[in-house]
């Protein structure tokens, strides 16, 4: 509904923003105040996403699972690798994680434009919308992790203390995805066709990220291209943890953390300095 209100009997003084940047302390507090909203929206959107389908939420796992089967089949045909549980599990490990990336980035790209009525009517930090989308993508990713765990054990991949590295890597992945998602979220408000080519861009991006292959599979002369990709390090580390059963290399972790921080800072800066325009561009 077209409802808007502020949170209490405060005095608000609205002044021109310097270079589009709102007072950061106040913005951060307002954003924290909207966390219940972001969480409620994430849960509601997740429920509504497959409301009209017979299998409902099961699709959030079935989609990457079926795609994983297709990729495993293609790999067995073109690379000549045997189509076995190990190949399928390797594909699923990378694919489930990239589905998380895809969900955060493509969801962020559309969430602001889809919330036009709320943006036109209510005053709230717009970043609460992509945060809500990040929460929804995480809620979608968690069940697929459980499904992956079954394949992981069945295929005989190692499990140990080093496996716990998967959790910080998921956080690093989430931060990187969120930062990149904010850039696409802003771009879509200004250029609506970004949403049209984004699925193709994400598909190409997946082929340039160690999702379906390992870094060792790539010839040295192409390694530099892969390393320019902000998602490469975290996915390379992800593969080391899941399939080699070891602590990820320090180089990949450091590189992944730097990519995450740069993506986050750049994404937040672009988003909040441009969000003033959202109400007149939507």
């Amino acid at each position: 509904m077209s409802l808007g209100a502020d949170s209490g009997a405060k005095v608000h003084v609205y002044k021109p923003l310097r270079r589009g940047m709102p007072p950061l302390g106040q913005y951060a507090r307002d954003t924290m105040d909207r966390m219940p909203f972001a969480w409620a929206k994430a849960k509601s959107d997740l429920r509504a996403q497959h409301l009209d389908t017979a299998l409902g939420q099961l699709w959030t796992v079935l989609n990457p699972l079926l795609l994983g089967l297709v990729y495993a089949l293609l790999i067995s045909i073109f690379i000549g690798r045997e189509l076995d549980l190990v190949t399928l599990t390797r594909v699923l490990g990378g694919l489930f994680a990239f589905y998380f990336t895809r969900g955060v980035i493509s969801g962020a790209a559309s969430v602001v434009v889809r919330s036009g009525a709320a943006i036109m009517n209510s005053s709230f930090p717009r970043i609460a919308l992509p945060i809500s989308n990040l929460m929804m993508a995480t809620l979608t990713f968690l069940p697929s992790l459980a499904v992956y765990a079954i394949f992981h054990l069945a295929a005989g991949f190692p499990v140990g203390w080093s496996t716990l590295w998967a959790f910080p890597l998921i956080i690093i992945m989430g931060v990187t995805n969120f930062g990149i998602g904010l850039l696409f979220s802003t771009a879509t408000v200004f250029f609506r066709d970004v949403a049209s080519f984004l699925p193709y861009l994400l598909r190409i991006w997946m082929y340039l990220t160690p999702v379906l292959f390992r870094m060792d599979d790539i010839p040295d002369r192409y390694q530099a291209i892969l390393r320019a990709n902000p998602l490469t390090a975290v996915f390379a580390a992800w593969g080391e943890v899941l399939f080699d059963g070891r602590v990820p290399s320090g180089e990949f972790v450091a590189w992944a953390v730097i990519s995450a921080l740069v993506s986050l800072l750049l994404g937040v800066w672009v988003f909040i300095t441009k969000e003033r325009s959202f109400a007149v561009r939507i």
């Binding site: 409802l3 509601s44 209510s122």
Partner: peptide, 8 residues
């Protein structure tokens, strides 16, 4: 959702 968005 609308109420939560504006801080209620």
């Amino acid at each position: 959702l609308g109420g939560l968005a504006i801080g209620l």
